[in-house]
């Protein structure tokens, strides 16, 4: 069966068919793994908590009652209070919004950049490819955290700049991935067919290559969510991320480190919050890898 014998419509139908089957397989695999289910539940509850945070919180997350500082967990303060007498429970609840926001905004910035660079590089090849890939090599040569620290320190510290810094550190690996994917399909029968049907380069890149790379990219970005959250928390911990009084979890761990011995809850509770959320993303990511792994599918 060669490209010439198929119309675009037929190609689309075949692809839709196979996609549907893949989806069904994935569903079965997902159901089979309790670990993945647990991860999904964690992420769903995080989203839910973030949505209704103001109703869940029992206190104003910014309100300081200095006389009540460093109180242990109690009926009044479920997770205790911090060094400025703020309710840790309410701060952790409100912090979920920041965490989600960071993860999604970074994904929304670095994903598209990686996509554009990767498709251009892979489809056009030649000098464009060479220049873009050497550029991404340079960025890839820096460990992510170090690059993020460099940019966060260079720009003024703050949540926005932390997001920019992490995005700068993230796009090259996406560009690599998309490029590889583009290379794989660039010379496929399908693209040949589209070209013969008269599509221009721009059209091919936007309407055909981009959608084909998108699913791989989305999977990869979702695998990275945990790392993104950890880097953001690390920046917060080093004082290069969110600024006080923001209830960002990394910042809260950092604020509480001086009290760890006698008031363990101040930094332990936001620490656990980070752990649970990142674990949620990683569990789902682990499951996703299984689903995408052909060896697993066969058995």
């Amino acid at each position: 069966m060669t490209a010439q014998n198929l119309t675009t419509v037929e190609v689309r139908m075949l692809r839709a068919e196979s996609r549907k089957r893949a989806l069904q397989d994935s569903w079965t695999l997902w159901k089979r793994n309790p670990v993945t289910i647990a991860g999904t539940l964690i992420i769903l509850s995080l989203i839910l908590i973030a949505m209704v945070a103001p109703w869940l919180a029992t206190h104003d997350p910014f309100d300081q009652i200095l006389a009540d500082r460093l109180f242990p967990p109690s009926l009044d303060y479920w997770f205790g209070t911090d060094n400025l007498g703020r309710d840790i429970y309410s701060r952790v609840i409100h912090g979920s919004r920041l965490t989600l926001m960071i993860a999604f905004v970074v994904a929304l910035i670095s994903g598209p950049i990686g996509l554009v660079v990767g498709v251009l590089s892979g489809y056009l090849g030649g000098m464009v490819d060479e220049v873009l890939m050497r550029l991404s090599d340079i960025f890839l040569a820096f460990p992510k955290l170090i690059l993020a620290i460099a940019f966060a320190a260079a720009l003024e510290p703050g949540l926005t700049n932390a997001i920019i810094a992490i995005s700068i550190a993230n796009w090259p690996s996406y560009a690599r991935l998309v490029r590889a994917e583009t290379l794989a399909v660039r010379n496929s029968d399908y693209i040949d067919a589209v070209r013969i049907l008269g599509a221009g380069h721009l059209r091919i890149m936007i309407y055909h290559l981009t959608p084909m790379c998108l699913s791989t990219l989305i999977v990869r970005v979702s695998l990275d969510m945990g790392t993104i959250i950890l880097i953001a928390a690390g920046l917060g911990f080093l004082g290069l991320g969110a600024q006080p009084p923001a209830p960002e979890w990394g910042l809260m761990v950092s604020d509480g480190r001086n009290y760890l011995v006698d008031q363990w809850w101040v930094s332990t509770i936001p620490g656990i919050a980070i752990l649970v959320v990142v674990l949620g993303f990683n569990l789902v990511g682990d499951g996703l890898r299984d689903i995408l792994d052909p060896h697993q599918r066969q058995s």
Partner: peptide, 14 residues
């Protein structure tokens, strides 16, 4: 996975 999800700065302190 817990190992890789752990914020090192917090785990180190604990």
């Amino acid at each position: 996975l817990i190992g890789v999800s752990m914020p090192v700065f917090w785990l180190g302190l604990v």
